[in-house]
């Protein structure tokens, strides 16, 4: 399988006062062509920062502090702005978390779809109008609603419209930043199903950013787990869920209900909160919350290693994973940390 995107050693820093908050630090992952890759982790771990870096539209106070974004034979981190802009939306599109705020309230939805088709896709008004209708059909909205304004849509419809918008120019990669987080579970499922179907039909590559491991379980082929600005584990989803190697992944699994069987099972949250990214601790960043932290963990940072074929993990005790998984499945293990 060919690799469409390969992020290597990427660091992104926000300037806050005179401090650097390094929201993503020396992290990377691959996206094989035609797959959905999940990017999962708690709030504030740097998922959005990572996702936005792929479009290179980042906050005013942010900068790419190092690393490489190899996409389709080019390094996006080093591409001149004009070339990067030519690539935006045509090759890499984006589905934002809140479609309400990311659609312009004063233009009709149709106009906003036609805008990218015409401005970025070079289509005529006529062709753009027809394509907009086609896109609405693809995502399952009645095309009669094209002439509506965003506020006239329900939350689910808006999110579908955002998907339609993202597919407009047949991009190679769609980056979806929490595309269903704001919706209720039933709508979440419908939209994820839709996305999955479209992805298969169109052979798309998708990065699915979410804090919800059940969303990952439901949709993604591969999953990348981030913690405090670092990738801690990266492998195919089935393996990740059945045989996770990183204690954080094990904890995350306990903390979320299953999307397929909503409501069953006891949830055990991971106690504590992630470290301050302006001043991250030495050693493993998860050590303060990890039930298995050892002496070494607090002094030396574990490096990401490919311990099995296609399974990368950054943990000193990865070799004892089978034992740790047993421990981690008991709620007391985590409650003891509280």
């Amino acid at each position: 399988m060919t690799t469409l995107l390969s992020v290597k050693d990427l660091s992104i820093a926000y300037k806050v006062g005179s401090n650097d908050v390094v929201a993503v630090s020396n992290s990377g992952f691959d996206v094989p062509k035609g797959t959905i890759v999940g990017l999962v982790g708690e709030s504030g771990c740097g998922k959005t920062t990572m996702a936005r870096a792929l479009t290179r539209v980042i906050a005013d106070n942010a900068r790419i502090a190092g690393g490489e974004i190899a996409f389709d034979g080019q390094d996006l981190a080093a591409l001149p702005e004009a070339k990067m802009n030519a690539l935006r939306w045509r090759d890499i599109s984006f589905i934002p978390q809140s479609a309400m705020n990311s659609l312009d309230p004063v233009y009709r939805v149709e106009y906003q779809i036609m805008e990218v088709l015409r401005d970025r896709g070079g289509m005529t008004r006529r062709a753009a109008r027809a394509r907009a209708a086609e896109l609405f059909e693809m995502v399952g909205i009645d095309k009669g609603r094209l002439r509506d304004f965003p506020h006239q849509f329900s939350g689910g419809m808006r999110q579908r419209a955002a998907i339609a918008l993202a597919l407009a120019l047949n991009p190679k990669l769609v980056v979806a930043d929490e595309p269903v987080t704001a919706l209720d579970v039933i709508i979440q499922r419908q939209i994820l199903d839709q996305l999955r179907t479209l992805q298969r039909e169109l052979g798309l590559s998708v990065i699915m950013v979410t804090h919800d491991i059940s969303v990952v379980a439901y949709t993604c082929d591969r999953t990348v787990v981030m913690y405090a600005g670092k990738v801690v584990e990266d492998c195919d989803t089935a393996t990740l869920l059945n045989r996770p190697l990183h204690p954080y992944t094990m904890g995350l699994k306990n903390a979320f209900p299953d999307l397929k069987s909503a409501g069953s099972g006891v949830l055990t949250p991971i106690a504590g909160s992630p470290p301050d990214l302006a001043d991250p601790p030495d050693g493993c960043r998860f050590a303060a919350r990890c039930p298995f932290a050892a002496e070494l963990c607090r002094s030396t940072e574990p490096a990401p290693l490919e311990v099995e074929k296609g399974h990368i993990v950054a943990c000193h005790r990865a070799s004892e994973a089978a034992q740790l998984r047993l421990e981690a499945s008991k709620p007391q293990t985590w409650e003891a940390m509280a």
């Binding site: 479009t55 045509r90 990311s102």
Partner: peptide, 23 residues
């Protein structure tokens, strides 16, 4: 957010600042 999105869409500065911002 819709201004950020306009930039992510690769729209021209005119579209971003005038069509969406100023409007």
């Amino acid at each position: 957010d819709f201004i950020t999105m306009a930039k992510i869409k690769g729209l021209s500065p005119f579209a971003v600042v005038i069509r969406h911002g100023a409007r």
